[in-house]
């Protein structure tokens, strides 16, 4: 099957997910009538994180964003599909073989408080990945940790403090320093700004932009906050019920969304102009799930065979929408 967003040969993406899936088996029922229901948290996800860019992964809570991120990090085993880091398939690597690849891919979570050991000084917290990977002497590690604290905007004096002494924004800075000290090529950031205040949020967004450019980082930025994604990301993928339903350059999503679910998300963003207040119409999840766009081949930006099974098809260069494809323009409905 032709992947519409296939990148140019030779340009290996930083991270690529191919047909990634995760099914949880939930036990339900009593002791006697034990049943197992399958929860398809993530289904057939294809994602390409290009080098030196920021890809946003958006969707409501429960749509499968974190599960996808955790699988990409090999912190959760996928039930289907493959994970390619800099072109190498790391899906089945054992822990020893995986260790060098772990240096290349790091993570920052929303709640960094629980990730920062309260018993360690911040200098120790930030130096910890170096120690785990056996890099440098203790003195070198300490010095690099202090330098990283400065780089994320905390003066060196913070090195002797503890996580509980920090504000939410400062803790996120420490978590970012700790994630980047190994010089990874990929950073997975799972809602890193969602718990922060407005002015602190802007500071962390700017810090991530600066570090991305300075280090040539590739960032998978997971968020339910579309406003942040608009300012930060080069490209956006929209997740709904475990599937990617639309993906495009950021302004392709914000200016020309085609999938009903994407549109409903965009429509719900509070407007900053009180003169633009309006009554909104809300569509149920079931209604949105049933409203699969039907596109004719003539509307597509590429040669795609007709298909009754919904799949991601290009509606413009680099703009993919999950749709059914008909041969005849007249049978078209929906988007």
């Amino acid at each position: 099957m032709g992947r519409p967003d296939r990148i140019a040969p030779g340009d290996v993406p930083a991270l690529e997910l191919r047909g990634l899936g995760k099914t949880f088996h939930l036990r339900s029922g009593g002791v006697l009538r034990r049943r197992s229901t399958a929860l398809h948290a993530v289904r057939d996800v294809d994602l390409v994180l290009p080098r030196n860019g920021i890809l946003g992964l958006v969707g409501e809570s429960g749509s499968g964003k974190s599960t996808t991120g955790m699988m990409a990090l090999r912190l959760l085993e996928p039930t289907a599909g493959r994970i390619l880091l800099e072109g190498t398939d790391i899906t089945t690597l054992g822990s020893a073989a995986l260790k060098p690849w772990r240096q290349k891919m790091q993570v920052v979570f929303q709640d960094s408080y629980s990730a920062l050991d309260p018993m360690f000084t911040l200098q120790q917290v930030v130096a910890e990945p170096l120690r785990i990977h056996g890099i440098g002497t203790p003195d070198e590690r300490a010095e690099r940790a202090l330098a990283w604290l400065e780089r994320v905007g905390l003066h060196r004096g913070y090195g002797s403090r503890y996580a509980h002494e920090l504000s939410g924004g400062q803790r996120q800075r420490v978590a970012i320093a700790r994630a980047l000290i190994l010089g990874p090529s990929v950073l997975i950031a799972d809602e890193p700004t969602s718990a922060l205040d407005v002015s602190v949020k802007a500071q962390i967004i700017n810090l991530l932009q600066d570090l991305q450019q300075d280090m040539g980082l590739s960032i998978l930025f997971i968020s339910h906050d579309l406003s942040v994604v608009r300012s930060l990301c080069d490209r956006v993928a929209v997740m709904f019920a475990g599937r990617i339903v639309e993906a495009a350059e950021t302004e392709g999503i914000f200016g020309a969304a085609r999938h009903p679910y994407t549109r409903s998300l965009l429509d719900a963003i509070p407007q900053l102009d009180p003169r633009n207040r309006r009554r909104r119409q809300f569509r149920s999840r079931e209604d949105l799930a049933a409203d699969i766009p039907v596109l004719s081949r003539a509307e597509l930006a590429g040669d795609v065979a007709p298909s009754d099974t919904p799949r991601l098809v290009p509606v413009a260069p680099g703009h993919l929408v999950e749709a059914r494809v008909t041969a005849d323009p007249d049978t078209r409905s929906g988007a």
Binding site: V198, S199, K201, L232, E251, G255
Partner: peptide, 20 residues
């Protein structure tokens, strides 16, 4: 002015330096 997402295109935001 520090609110993200007001304009199209990836950009640095006008942040308020310092802390509360």
């Amino acid at each position: 002015v520090s609110i993200p997402g007001q304009e199209g295109g990836r950009r640095r935001l006008t942040e308020i330096p310092g802390a509360s």
